[in-house]
Every structure is written in structure tokens, then in C-alpha cells.
């Protein structure tokens, strides 16, 4: 098993709040890892640690390691913009910029120095195709991205993340704000994307976890209770607490 992302004894505090406790988790290449667990158990915190978006929280304190391709991302010589370029993030609430669809997708590549119009055109088309939304928007690339439906906006956000050609894609409840049809489109998309990317998702939806993920990690009160192949975790959970949670018996 080739883990692109791996945490070693990862601990995180928000002030006095010990939000992640000794997390050791491997996220294998070209697989979908799903993080599940009750609200407030630290799933988003864990995900945000992987691309150092937690740096924005002033009170945060982190110990332990996160290895991205065997490089500890907290090493002083690691450039955080380099990390975030390779480890992309899609947020819970669709958050396209208040700009045209085209400019949304081109934002990342432009930031990283691509100015050539033809090259940008190609990236935009490729990314929109990659996010399975090209056909729906190809005739209105100059329109505001905010004019799209929520499900379309979320796929625009995925396309925007793909446009910088990341290695890993983090998705925090990316479908929780969407209707069932948009959700299933994005689930299909995830199955497609894992051929080229390594994906980590957070979900509250057990069916979704079983449908899309290869591996599954169960968090509780900031601890990683159990991580295994999704099928195994859902059929023969090793830990009683996991079993309680996935069968809905969780208090």
C-alpha cells in the first residue's frame, strides 16, 4: 500500500481544547478515504490540518507529523502555498468567487503564473470536463459563477481545485448542501477522479461512505477509533464504538 498522505502521532489543540489525539492514519494513492464520526469529533479539523488551512486559526497548536510524499508538511522549509497547490480542498458550502465561470477556474493557474490565453483556455476546458460540468456551462463561461445552481457551483469549485493539477483532493462534506441528484453526480465524479487523484472526504452519510470510499476512518472525541477497508469496517467493525455508530445506536 502506497500512502501519499500519512499522519504520525498527530495532536492538535485549539487553545485548551485537545481536538485531535495521537492520530495515525494512512491515505493510500488513488483511493478514496472517508472520515466519519459524530459532529465535533474533529473530522474537519483533521482535514484542514492536511493542507495547513488550520494555520489561519490563531490559537492552534500542532504536534506530530503529517507526511505528504514522505515530506513533513510542518518542516520550516516547506512552502505552504506549494503544499496547498498539491493538496487541494473543496469546502462544505459551495464558494465560487463572485467572478465569471472562466475566471473562477483560471484563478489558480493564473496565480501560479500562467498568463497564456490559449493555455488557460485548455486548462479551463479540461478542468470543467474533469468535474463533469463542461457541457452544462460551455456556452456561458463569461457568466457569473454565482448564477449557477448549488450543485453546479460545487462542481465549479471542484473544477477550480482540479485546475491547479493537485495530487490530493480533500472534500469536507462536499455534498451536504446539495439535492440527491447533484449528490449522485458528485459521487460518480469522485469515483472517476480517484483514477488520477488521491481523495479524502468527510461525510455524515453512511451510505455515501460505503458507496464511494475504499477506506474508512471512524473518529470519536478527537480520537481515531478505527480505520480499515470500508467493506470490512462496515461489515465486521473491530471496535464496539464503531459498531454502535454505524448501526445508528450511537448515543
Amino acid at each position: 500500500m502506497n500512502a501519499i498522505l500519512k499522519t504520525e502521532n498527530l495532536n492538535l489543540w485549539y487553545g485548551q481544547n485537545h481536538a485531535l489525539k495521537d492520530i495515525n492514519l494512512e491515505m493510500p494513492q488513488n483511493q478514496v478515504t472517508a472520515l466519519i464520526g459524530p459532529s465535533g469529533c474533529g473530522k474537519s479539523t483533521f482535514l484542514k490540518t492536511l493542507d495547513r488551512m488550520n494555520d489561519l486559526v490563531p490559537t492552534v497548536k500542532i504536534e506530530g507529523k503529517v507526511l505528504y510524499r514522505d515530506q513533513n508538511i510542518f518542516d520550516p522549509q516547506v512552502d505552504v502555498t506549494w503544499l496547498r497547490r498539491h493538496v487541494g480542498m473543496v469546502f462544505q458550502k459551495p464558494n465560487p468567487f463572485p467572478m465569471s465561470i472562466y475566471d473562477n477556474i483560471a484563478y489558480g493557474p493564473r496565480t501560479h503564473g500562467i498568463r497564456n490565453k490559449k493555455q488557460l483556455d485548455e486548462i479551463v476546458e479540461k478542468s470543467l470536463r474533469g468535474a463533469a460540468i463542461w457541457d452544462e456551462v460551455k456556452d456561458r463561461l463569461k457568466k457569473s459563477a454565482l448564477s449557477l445552481s448549488g450543485g453546479q457551483q460545487q462542481r465549479i469549485c471542484i473544477a477550480r481545485a482540479l485546475a491547479v493539477e493537485p495530487d490530493v483532493l480533500l472534500m469536507d462534506e462536499a455534498t451536504s448542501a446539495l439535492d440527491p441528484i447533484s449528490t449522485s453526480k458528485i459521487e460518480d465524479l469522485i469515483a472517476e477522479l480517484k483514477k488520477s487523484y488521491t481523495i479524502v472526504i468527510v461525510t455524515h452519510n453512511m451510505q455515501q461512505a460505503t458507496r464511494v470510499s475504499d477506506r474508512c476512518a471512524f473518529f470519536l472525541h478527537g480520537e481515531l477509533v478505527e480505520a480499515d477497508d470500508t467493506e470490512k469496517l462496515f461489515s465486521v467493525p473491530k471496535d464496539k464504538r464503531t459498531e454502535d455508530y454505524i448501526t445508528g445506536r450511537f448515543g
Binding site: M53, R84, R85, G88, F97, G108, T111, H112, R160, V164
Partner: peptide, 10 residues
Amino acid sequence: YEEASLALGA
């Protein structure tokens, strides 16, 4: 908006 931009490596 700002988070999205930072997450893209800006």
C-alpha cells in the same frame, strides 16, 4: 472567498 483562494495556493 478568501479561504478558497488560500486553499488554491495563493
